[in-house]
Simulated scan of single mutants.
Amino acid sequence: MQSLITCVLIIAFISPCLCHRWNVGTQNTIYNVIDFGAVGDGKTDDTQAFLKAWQSMCEAQGTSTLLIPPNKVFLVTSMLLKGPCVAPSVQIQLQGVIVAPTKDAWVEGNLNTLIMISNVNGLTIDGSGGLIDGYGSAWWACKSCPRPSVLIINSCNSVSVTNLNMINSPKSHIHVNGCEGATFSHINISAPGDSPNTDGFDISTSKNIMIEDSTIATGDDCIAISGGSSYINVTGIACGPGHGISIGSLGKKFDTVQEVYVRNCSFIRTTNGARIKTFPNQAVEVSDVTYRGIHGTSLDGRAITLDCGESGCYGIVLDQINIVSCLTGKSASCFCNNAHGTATATNPNCTCLLP
């Protein structure tokens, strides 16, 4: 078997400092990007000032904060904020606006991401009052072009991100890769419903990730969870428009996703609710999946689709589900193919499930 998926889906459709260093008591030192040469006029490239401020903060003893002050617009190009840092914990306070360059201003061959934070443990990002704008509209017309993500958090442990506002990424907004122990709360992500591949979150090869109390409206998956990820908790998400919350696609190589929990989420104007995506003809094994407490309406006649490959899906549990068609006179239906499990208190009735 190339892939193994084990998950449970339980869903309800229902004043800046302007000095170089500012000590808060004796515990925290502030590194303001303005003091390292940032202009903040939305036209000047402030990348080098950000990198200098980051380097000074990362090399400092004790807890330190990188401050991006309010009432400024900071233009940055692709930049890597790299650790490990000397201090056991570092903070980023985003109070101003960060904007990406225009499409033509990106350096060819450097199109991976606008901001990458790598190998930093104990990272805290507070985006209260701030915004990151990916200026993605110029990219979306070319769906096959390589496009950058806005924020990649790579190989970081014990991460906390709160009150972060992001709009219009050329590609995915936040990509979490190779991380263990990260919490994202009160995140607001927005891109037009027809913008291609603008996932809210992409999670890969990560463990113990929590995404909670957030609003995600994009042109693709609100949250996509891919291979090597486990113990992913998603709760209190308002998703839509978009493609819903997805596991996969899986099966291109050997990978495993397990212990995924989705609770108390709403899906409005999404093409899917909660789904598992696999590559066809790749012998992907799907087992021990529970859908419980789902209610709502479906524009498509197939309210529930369990289309499994030759390996089959086993241990599927449908419980307390009520999905009806939103079209007058049209009934919702359940479709199964090689799916094994049980259905209780479920409408539409999934008599096609195999024992």
Rank of each mutant, 00 (worst) to 15 (best):
K277R: 12
S230W: 12
A303I: 11
G309H: 07
I247H: 00
A224Q: 14
C334S: 12
Y231W: 11
L250A: 03
E310K: 10
V262A: 13
V234I: 15
F254S: 06
D288S: 09
G248A: 00
T270E: 11
R302C: 08
P241E: 09
S325N: 11
Y261W: 09
G329M: 09
G301Y: 06
A274W: 03
I323A: 10
R269S: 14
I304H: 02
I304N: 02
Y231D: 15
G273C: 14
V317T: 15
K252W: 02
S246Y: 00
G228K: 05
R292V: 10
N337S: 15
V317G: 04
C308D: 01
C334E: 08
T305P: 00
T270V: 15
I321R: 08
N322C: 11
T256C: 01
I225H: 01
A274M: 14
Y291W: 12
Y261I: 07
Q282W: 02
I232L: 01
G273I: 14
I276N: 00
D255K: 00
N337W: 13
I304W: 01
A283L: 10
L299I: 10
R302P: 04
I268M: 11
S333R: 14
I225Q: 00
A303L: 06
T271R: 09
E285P: 02
D221T: 00
T297G: 07
